[in-house]
C-alpha cells in the first residue's frame, strides 16, 4: 500500500487491481475459497454463468432484494385496493348494475395485477441498483483477456482498494491459485 504513488485512485493509469484467469469451474471454486480465507473483502469472481456453490466459496452474503420486492408487492396490493376503493366508492360513487360500491371480489384482479407490477419492477430496478448498474465503463473492460468472462473463462479480481491488498503478496496468492500470470488492471 505504501508504495502506491500518484496517480490517485480513479485517475488514468491508477492501479485498479489484479485479475487472474481460471480454466475450469472447480479451479475457480478452490481459488475463491482461498481468497476468501485470506480475508480479502474487495474482490470478485467473474463467470459466464451462475456457478453453483460459488456464493458459498466467496462468502457472498444473501441479498436484501426479496425484502424490497415483498415490500413493493405489498405496496401494490394496498395501493391497488385503495385506488379502487377511493375512486369508485368515495370520490365518485355511481350505481352500477345494483352492485355495491365497494366489494372485494370485483377488486381482486386489479389489486393482484398492481401487486405483481410493483414487485416485478422493483425486482429488476433494485437488482440493477444494488449491483451499481448501469456502469458502462469499468477498469476491467480495459483488459483483453477479460472479454472471455462472458464466454468460457473464469476470473478472480482483487481490487487495490482492499485493505489487505499488497502488490507482491496478492500477486503471489493469485498466481499460486491459477498457475497463470496475473493481469494488472489500471484505470483508463
Amino acid at each position: 500500500m505504501s508504495e502506491r504513488t500518484a496517480p490517485a485512485a480513479g485517475e488514468p493509469g491508477a492501479l485498479y487491481g489484479y485479475l487472474v484467469e481460471f480454466d475450469k469451474v472447480d479451479e475457480l471454486l478452490v481459488g475463491a475459497r482461498a481468497v476468501r480465507d485470506a480475508g480479502y473483502t474487495r474482490w470478485d469472481a467473474h463467470t459466464p454463468f451462475v456457478i453453483h456453490g460459488l456464493d458459498a466459496a466467496m462468502g457472498v452474503k444473501k441479498t436484501v432484494l426479496p425484502y424490497l420486492v415483498f415490500g413493493a408487492g405489498l405496496t401494490g396490493t394496498v395501493g391497488g385496493i385503495a385506488l379502487q376503493w377511493w375512486t369508485n366508492a368515495v370520490d365518485y360513487p355511481y350505481l352500477i348494475s345494483g352492485k355495491p360500491l365497494f366489494s372485494l371480489p370485483a377488486n381482486i384482479p386489479v389489486a393482484f395485477e398492481t401487486t405483481i407490477l410493483f414487485a416485478a419492477l422493483t425486482a429488476l430496478v433494485a437488482m440493477l441498483a444494488l449491483n451499481g448498474l448501469p456502469r458502462l465503463y469499468h477498469p476491467l473492460f480495459t483488459n483483453r483477456a477479460f472479454k472471455r468472462a462472458t464466454d468460457d473463462r473464469f476470473f478472480i479480481s482483487i481490487e487495490a482498494a482492499d485493505p489487505l491488498f499488497d502488490r507482491s503478496a496478492t500477486r503471489e496468492l493469485l498466481e499460486s491459485l491459477s498457475g497463470r500470470t496475473v493481469e494488472v488492471i489500471e484505470e483508463a
Partner: peptide, 11 residues
C-alpha cells in the same frame, strides 16, 4: 473498445 469514463453519468 471501451466506453469513456464520463458514461458514469448514465446512472
Amino acid at each position: 473498445f471501451i466506453f469513456p469514463k464520463w458514461t458514469w453519468v448514465l446512472r
